[in-house]
Design a protein around this nucleic acid. Structure first.
Lengths: 214, 214
DNA sequence: CCTATCTCTGTACGGTGTGCAATGTTATGC
DNA sequence: GCATAACATTGCACACCGTACAGAGATAGG
């Protein structure tokens, strides 16, 4: 527990500080090593005392982003569907607020401790909803896939505009009913694919499937 | 239609050729402009005659990857669930075969013509299954999210190993039942999250939800 | 033939991650 | 108290990257 005392000069930074400023500098993508070092008033190489490489910084950022959506939303006395939906929306919101965060998630396996906690709580939710252990586990994965997948696609579409902008822009696109008749007919709905409403709809639909087949 | 004749020397390349070698050089991520140019025996700047920037090359690559999963799998006389499942598995397979392709999808909006065709056909599937136009559109989006989301997460997890490797490696991780009791209990299933079997399970579950609430 | 237009190249700029040897600081064993 | 070994930090360098810009050469229309 007590930190082992070692020779050599004191460290002037901590890994946490580095991630702090990396988060501060985050703007669509992870900042450069050189940028972070500059903000810390230090030469770039110094960071390699604390991190093996740039990828490690990105992994740490991912965990920070995940932790921004309060996992406590998954517990409490509300009905289980509500808890899942609340947490899912919170996470989606975080990933959309920080553009590029979603894409960063797919850089490496997601195995931080925040992710583990969320998994555990989703399992609890589905177990309490009456699913078997195996079905709860599968459902947990399905939900994670949906939340991250949807947020990622939406983030890619949003790049720079608000939700309303995107819908409006989409609505102005003219679809040739000769080539894509169904798409043309469904266009008013297709234009809203990246809204929170659609997100909730497909999440609820997925949950229906999860508990329906039992 | 007939190409307008213009002054200036003949072009030595086509945009398609460039994408061809970009695809050939693809290895986890899109190759560099300089790399593609070298393989084409040309100076890097030359490519800017055909592409506005590197992002355009990546967009073209995305469309190529999407086109590798045969959209015809979505049509035919098989039952609709089967058609969706077949296409979804084919696309997943393509995205896993080319590591990094999935992540590339999330670089920009997916609006190529292959994507449009797939959307149209998914709408047809759900319409033929009895859904309203709006529900068909929402279901289409939900399926796309699931396929791309799942493939992306799996691709991030797979980085370098086969499916069996990953499952085996996961199984060897010891989960502390004190901290994560449910996760520990469900671990044999959790370890298979990135298998095709789980992919099919959650897709079927989603489809159940799509047609169940009608 | 002249000229406008186009492709391709040479060169260059400012950026990236990171390896390596040198410099200087620190705690420990004598 | 001092030598020593371990350590943090730095300067420098390398090999890349995307791409801007000016110029050279090729080509078509007038």
């Amino acid at each position: 527990m007590e930190e082992k005392t070692r020779p050599g000069p004191k460290r002037s930074l901590t890994a946490e500080q580095i991630v702090d400023v990396a988060l501060e500098l985050f703007d669509g993508e992870a900042p450069s090593i050189r940028g972070v070092a500059a903000k810390l008033g230090v030469r770039p190489n110094t960071l390699y005392t604390y991190l093996p490489d740039r990828a490690a910084m990105e992994r740490a950022l991912v965990d920070r982003f995940l932790a921004m959506a309060d996992p406590d939303l998954l517990i409490g006395r509300r009905v289980w569907r509500r808890r899942v939906e609340d947490y899912a929306c919170a996470l989606r919101s975080v990933l959309l607020r920080h553009r590029g965060a979603a894409a960063l998630l797919h850089t490496a396996p997601i195995d931080g401790q925040t992710a583990a906690l969320v998994g555990e709580r989703l399992l609890a939710v589905f177990t309490s909803a009456g699913l078997s252990t195996a079905d709860a586990a599968r459902s947990t994965y399905a939900v994670i896939v949906h939340v991250l997948g949807s947020a990622t696609l939406t983030a890619a579409d949003l790049r720079g505009g608000t939700e309303a902008d995107i819908v409006a822009a989409r609505l102005e696109v003219a679809i040739d009913p000769g080539f894509l008749p169904l798409t043309a007919a469904a266009w008013p709905v297709v234009a809203t694919w990246n809204t929170e409403e659609q997100f909730r709809w497909s999440l609820r639909t997925l949950l229906n499937g999860c508990v329906g087949g039992a």
